[in-house]
Protein backbone atom coordinates (compact mmCIF):
# COMPACT_ATOMS: atom_id res chain seq x y z
CA UNK A 1 0.00 0.00 0.00
CA UNK A 2 1.25 3.50 -0.79
CA UNK A 3 1.50 6.54 1.46
CA UNK A 4 -0.95 7.65 4.04
CA UNK A 5 -3.19 10.64 4.62
CA UNK A 6 -1.72 13.50 6.58
CA UNK A 7 -1.79 12.82 10.29
CA UNK A 8 -2.90 15.70 12.48
CA UNK A 9 0.17 16.74 14.41
CA UNK A 10 -0.15 18.15 17.94
CA UNK A 11 1.55 21.50 18.42
CA UNK A 12 4.23 21.76 21.12
CA UNK A 13 2.92 23.28 24.36
CA UNK A 14 4.45 26.57 25.48
CA UNK A 15 5.49 26.22 29.12
CA UNK A 16 6.16 28.80 31.82
CA UNK A 17 7.61 27.46 35.10
CA UNK A 18 6.75 23.82 34.20
CA UNK A 19 3.05 24.55 33.62
CA UNK A 20 1.40 25.21 30.23
CA UNK A 21 1.33 28.97 29.67
CA UNK A 22 -2.44 29.02 29.21
CA UNK A 23 -2.93 27.48 32.67
CA UNK A 24 -1.43 30.41 34.58
CA UNK A 25 -4.37 32.84 34.22
CA UNK A 26 -6.64 30.06 35.49
CA UNK A 27 -4.50 29.82 38.63
CA UNK A 28 -3.59 33.46 39.16
CA UNK A 29 -6.95 35.16 38.52
CA UNK A 30 -8.90 33.32 41.26
CA UNK A 31 -6.01 33.94 43.69
CA UNK A 32 -6.07 37.65 42.83
CA UNK A 33 -9.84 37.86 43.37
CA UNK A 34 -9.46 35.98 46.66
CA UNK A 35 -6.74 38.31 47.90
CA UNK A 36 -8.77 41.41 46.97
CA UNK A 37 -11.87 40.08 48.75
CA UNK A 38 -9.92 39.19 51.89
CA UNK A 39 -8.35 42.68 51.86
CA UNK A 40 -11.76 44.32 51.50
CA UNK A 41 -13.14 42.14 54.31
CA UNK A 42 -10.25 43.03 56.64
CA UNK A 43 -10.65 46.72 55.86
CA UNK A 44 -14.43 46.76 56.23
CA UNK A 45 -14.36 44.99 59.60
CA UNK A 46 -11.68 47.28 60.99
CA UNK A 47 -13.10 50.51 59.57
CA UNK A 48 -16.57 49.79 60.97
CA UNK A 49 -15.22 48.33 64.22
CA UNK A 50 -17.36 45.19 63.88
CA UNK A 51 -17.01 43.10 67.06
CA UNK A 52 -15.04 39.87 66.65
CA UNK A 53 -18.02 37.72 67.85
CA UNK A 54 -20.12 39.04 64.92
CA UNK A 55 -17.57 38.89 62.11
CA UNK A 56 -13.88 38.41 62.77
CA UNK A 57 -11.38 39.79 60.24
CA UNK A 58 -9.28 37.29 58.23
CA UNK A 59 -6.15 38.08 60.22
CA UNK A 60 -7.84 37.05 63.47
CA UNK A 61 -9.22 33.87 61.86
CA UNK A 62 -5.74 33.01 60.64
CA UNK A 63 -4.33 33.57 64.15
CA UNK A 64 -7.05 31.30 65.58
CA UNK A 65 -6.24 28.67 62.99
CA UNK A 66 -2.56 28.70 63.98
CA UNK A 67 -3.31 28.74 67.72
CA UNK A 68 -5.89 25.93 67.58
CA UNK A 69 -4.09 23.88 64.93
CA UNK A 70 -3.31 20.98 67.33
CA UNK A 71 -7.00 20.32 68.08
CA UNK A 72 -8.30 21.35 64.64
CA UNK A 73 -5.84 19.09 62.81
CA UNK A 74 -7.03 16.07 64.81
CA UNK A 75 -10.63 16.86 63.85
CA UNK A 76 -9.61 17.44 60.24
CA UNK A 77 -7.96 14.01 60.25
CA UNK A 78 -11.18 12.37 61.46
CA UNK A 79 -13.32 14.13 58.86
CA UNK A 80 -10.86 13.22 56.10
CA UNK A 81 -10.80 9.59 57.16
CA UNK A 82 -14.58 9.35 57.13
CA UNK A 83 -14.84 11.18 53.79
CA UNK A 84 -12.28 9.02 52.02
CA UNK A 85 -13.50 5.75 53.50
CA UNK A 86 -17.05 6.65 52.42
CA UNK A 87 -15.86 7.61 48.94
CA UNK A 88 -13.91 4.38 48.48
CA UNK A 89 -16.82 2.23 49.66
CA UNK A 90 -19.22 4.25 47.47
CA UNK A 91 -16.97 3.83 44.44
CA UNK A 92 -16.58 0.09 44.97
CA UNK A 93 -20.25 -0.54 45.72
CA UNK A 94 -21.48 1.78 42.96
CA UNK A 95 -19.24 0.16 40.38
CA UNK A 96 -20.11 -3.37 41.48
CA UNK A 97 -23.85 -2.70 41.47
CA UNK A 98 -23.66 -0.95 38.08
CA UNK A 99 -21.88 -3.98 36.62
CA UNK A 100 -24.58 -6.20 38.07
CA UNK A 101 -27.25 -3.95 36.50
CA UNK A 102 -25.48 -4.17 33.14
CA UNK A 103 -25.48 -7.96 33.29
CA UNK A 104 -29.15 -8.33 34.11
CA UNK A 105 -31.97 -6.01 33.11
CA UNK A 106 -34.14 -7.67 35.78
CA UNK A 107 -31.78 -6.81 38.60
CA UNK A 108 -31.64 -3.22 37.36
CA UNK A 109 -35.45 -2.99 37.09
CA UNK A 110 -35.91 -4.35 40.61
CA UNK A 111 -33.16 -2.49 42.47
CA UNK A 112 -32.73 0.87 40.76
CA UNK A 113 -35.85 2.46 42.33
CA UNK A 114 -34.45 1.68 45.79
CA UNK A 115 -31.19 3.36 44.91
CA UNK A 116 -33.28 6.41 44.00
CA UNK A 117 -35.10 6.19 47.35
CA UNK A 118 -31.72 6.17 49.08
CA UNK A 119 -30.72 9.23 47.07
CA UNK A 120 -33.80 11.38 47.67
CA UNK A 121 -34.10 10.70 51.41
CA UNK A 122 -32.58 13.74 53.20
CA UNK A 123 -29.49 12.60 55.06
CA UNK A 124 -30.29 14.97 57.96
CA UNK A 125 -33.50 13.04 58.53
CA UNK A 126 -32.00 9.57 58.73
CA UNK A 127 -28.63 10.43 60.28
CA UNK A 128 -30.05 10.44 63.86
CA UNK A 129 -31.47 6.95 63.35
CA UNK A 130 -28.24 5.61 61.95
CA UNK A 131 -26.29 7.16 64.82
CA UNK A 132 -28.65 5.51 67.30
CA UNK A 133 -28.55 2.12 65.58
CA UNK A 134 -24.81 1.94 64.99
CA UNK A 135 -22.74 1.93 68.13
CA UNK A 136 -19.42 2.90 66.60
CA UNK A 137 -19.73 6.61 65.86
CA UNK A 138 -17.22 6.56 63.04
CA UNK A 139 -18.98 3.71 61.33
CA UNK A 140 -22.29 5.60 61.68
CA UNK A 141 -20.76 8.71 60.10
CA UNK A 142 -19.24 6.61 57.34
CA UNK A 143 -22.62 5.09 56.51
CA UNK A 144 -24.21 8.57 56.31
CA UNK A 145 -21.46 9.89 54.02
CA UNK A 146 -21.67 6.74 51.91
CA UNK A 147 -25.43 7.11 51.38
CA UNK A 148 -24.91 10.61 49.96
CA UNK A 149 -21.89 9.70 47.83
CA UNK A 150 -23.15 6.43 46.44
CA UNK A 151 -25.83 7.43 43.94
CA UNK A 152 -23.92 9.62 41.44
CA UNK A 153 -21.37 6.84 40.98
CA UNK A 154 -24.04 4.18 40.52
CA UNK A 155 -26.18 6.15 38.09
CA UNK A 156 -23.25 7.51 36.06
CA UNK A 157 -21.56 4.13 35.76
CA UNK A 158 -24.83 2.43 34.81
CA UNK A 159 -25.33 5.03 32.09
CA UNK A 160 -21.76 4.51 30.89
CA UNK A 161 -22.02 0.73 30.75
CA UNK A 162 -25.18 1.06 28.64
CA UNK A 163 -23.83 3.76 26.30
CA UNK A 164 -21.45 1.54 24.39
CA UNK A 165 -21.40 2.04 20.58
CA UNK A 166 -23.69 -0.73 19.29
CA UNK A 167 -21.39 -1.40 16.35
CA UNK A 168 -18.63 -2.24 18.82
CA UNK A 169 -21.02 -4.59 20.60
CA UNK A 170 -21.71 -6.23 17.21
CA UNK A 171 -17.98 -6.45 16.54
CA UNK A 172 -17.45 -8.31 19.83
CA UNK A 173 -20.32 -10.66 18.95
CA UNK A 174 -18.83 -11.26 15.52
CA UNK A 175 -15.58 -12.42 17.10
CA UNK A 176 -17.53 -14.57 19.56
CA UNK A 177 -16.36 -12.67 22.62
CA UNK A 178 -17.58 -14.03 25.94
CA UNK A 179 -19.75 -11.88 28.24
CA UNK A 180 -16.76 -11.44 30.51
CA UNK A 181 -14.51 -10.30 27.64
CA UNK A 182 -17.15 -7.82 26.49
CA UNK A 183 -17.38 -6.45 30.03
CA UNK A 184 -13.62 -6.16 30.61
CA UNK A 185 -12.45 -5.00 27.18
CA UNK A 186 -15.46 -2.97 26.05
CA UNK A 187 -18.07 -1.96 28.62
CA UNK A 188 -15.85 -1.06 31.57
CA UNK A 189 -13.39 1.08 29.58
CA UNK A 190 -16.31 2.79 27.83
CA UNK A 191 -17.92 3.53 31.21
CA UNK A 192 -14.66 4.92 32.67
CA UNK A 193 -15.32 8.62 31.84
CA UNK A 194 -18.83 8.35 33.30
CA UNK A 195 -17.55 6.61 36.43
CA UNK A 196 -14.85 9.25 36.97
CA UNK A 197 -17.23 12.16 36.57
CA UNK A 198 -19.55 10.44 39.06
CA UNK A 199 -16.59 10.05 41.41
CA UNK A 200 -15.83 13.75 41.12
CA UNK A 201 -19.37 14.67 42.12
CA UNK A 202 -19.34 12.10 44.92
CA UNK A 203 -16.06 13.38 46.35
CA UNK A 204 -17.70 16.67 47.31
CA UNK A 205 -20.88 14.92 48.42
CA UNK A 206 -18.99 12.50 50.70
CA UNK A 207 -17.48 15.48 52.50
CA UNK A 208 -20.88 17.15 52.85
CA UNK A 209 -22.42 13.88 54.04
CA UNK A 210 -19.69 13.44 56.64
CA UNK A 211 -20.06 17.03 57.88
CA UNK A 212 -23.86 16.84 58.10
CA UNK A 213 -23.66 13.57 60.03
CA UNK A 214 -21.06 15.05 62.35
CA UNK A 215 -23.40 17.96 63.07
CA UNK A 216 -26.20 15.57 63.93
CA UNK A 217 -23.88 13.50 66.11
CA UNK A 218 -22.40 16.66 67.65
CA UNK A 219 -25.84 17.99 68.66
CA UNK A 220 -26.29 14.68 70.48
CA UNK A 221 -23.06 15.39 72.34
CA UNK A 222 -20.86 12.87 70.56
CA UNK A 223 -17.55 14.45 69.66
CA UNK A 224 -16.02 13.89 66.25
CA UNK A 225 -14.60 15.84 63.28
CA UNK A 226 -14.55 19.43 62.08
CA UNK A 227 -18.30 19.97 62.26
CA UNK A 228 -18.19 19.20 65.95
CA UNK A 229 -15.49 21.87 66.35
CA UNK A 230 -17.79 24.37 64.65
CA UNK A 231 -20.65 23.49 66.98
CA UNK A 232 -18.42 23.64 70.04
CA UNK A 233 -16.91 26.99 69.04
CA UNK A 234 -20.42 28.31 68.39
CA UNK A 235 -21.56 27.36 71.92
CA UNK A 236 -18.49 29.04 73.38
CA UNK A 237 -18.86 32.10 71.13
CA UNK A 238 -15.37 31.42 69.76
CA UNK A 239 -16.30 32.83 66.38
CA UNK A 240 -12.75 33.06 64.89
CA UNK A 241 -12.26 29.37 65.69
CA UNK A 242 -15.57 28.60 64.03
CA UNK A 243 -14.44 30.37 60.88
CA UNK A 244 -11.07 28.59 61.04
CA UNK A 245 -12.85 25.20 61.02
CA UNK A 246 -15.11 26.36 58.20
CA UNK A 247 -12.04 27.48 56.24
CA UNK A 248 -10.50 24.01 56.66
CA UNK A 249 -13.71 22.35 55.39
CA UNK A 250 -13.75 24.56 52.28
CA UNK A 251 -10.10 23.89 51.65
CA UNK A 252 -10.68 20.13 51.97
CA UNK A 253 -13.58 20.29 49.52
CA UNK A 254 -11.50 22.19 46.97
CA UNK A 255 -8.57 19.81 47.42
CA UNK A 256 -10.82 16.76 46.86
CA UNK A 257 -12.35 18.35 43.76
CA UNK A 258 -8.95 19.21 42.26
CA UNK A 259 -7.43 15.84 43.15
CA UNK A 260 -10.28 13.90 41.52
CA UNK A 261 -10.10 16.22 38.51
CA UNK A 262 -6.43 15.33 38.19
CA UNK A 263 -7.23 11.62 38.43
CA UNK A 264 -9.84 12.09 35.70
CA UNK A 265 -7.38 13.95 33.48
CA UNK A 266 -4.59 11.42 33.93
CA UNK A 267 -6.86 8.46 33.26
CA UNK A 268 -8.53 9.90 30.16
CA UNK A 269 -6.00 12.24 28.58
CA UNK A 270 -4.97 9.83 25.86
CA UNK A 271 -8.35 9.24 24.39
CA UNK A 272 -11.36 11.04 25.78
CA UNK A 273 -12.61 14.35 24.36
CA UNK A 274 -13.17 15.78 27.83
CA UNK A 275 -9.48 15.46 28.69
CA UNK A 276 -8.13 16.84 25.41
CA UNK A 277 -6.51 20.23 25.05
CA UNK A 278 -8.69 22.50 22.99
CA UNK A 279 -7.21 23.10 19.58
CA UNK A 280 -7.18 26.11 17.31
Amino acid sequence: MTGVDDAPRPEPVRRVLFLPAELWPRILMPILIGALSLGAWEWAVRANEVPVYILPPPSVIWAALLRDWPSLSVSLGITLQITFAALIVAAAAGLALAVLFAQSKWVELSLFPYAVVLQVTPIVAIAPLIIIWVDDIRLALLICAWIVAFFPILSNTTLGLNSVDHNLVDLFRLYRATRFQTLIFLRLPAAMPYFLSGLRISGGLALIGAIVAEFVAGTGGRASGLAYRILEAGYQLQIPRMFAALFLICLTGIAIFLALGLVQHLALRRWHESAMRKEG
Binding site: V4, D5, W271
Partner: peptide, 9 residues
Protein backbone atom coordinates in the same frame (compact mmCIF):
# COMPACT_ATOMS: atom_id res chain seq x y z
CA UNK B 1 -4.49 6.60 19.45
CA UNK B 2 -7.51 6.88 17.14
CA UNK B 3 -8.12 10.47 18.30
CA UNK B 4 -4.81 11.51 16.70
CA UNK B 5 -5.51 9.80 13.36
CA UNK B 6 -7.33 11.27 10.35
CA UNK B 7 -10.62 9.77 9.14
CA UNK B 8 -8.92 7.82 6.36
CA UNK B 9 -6.28 6.47 8.71
Amino acid sequence: YPRALSGGM
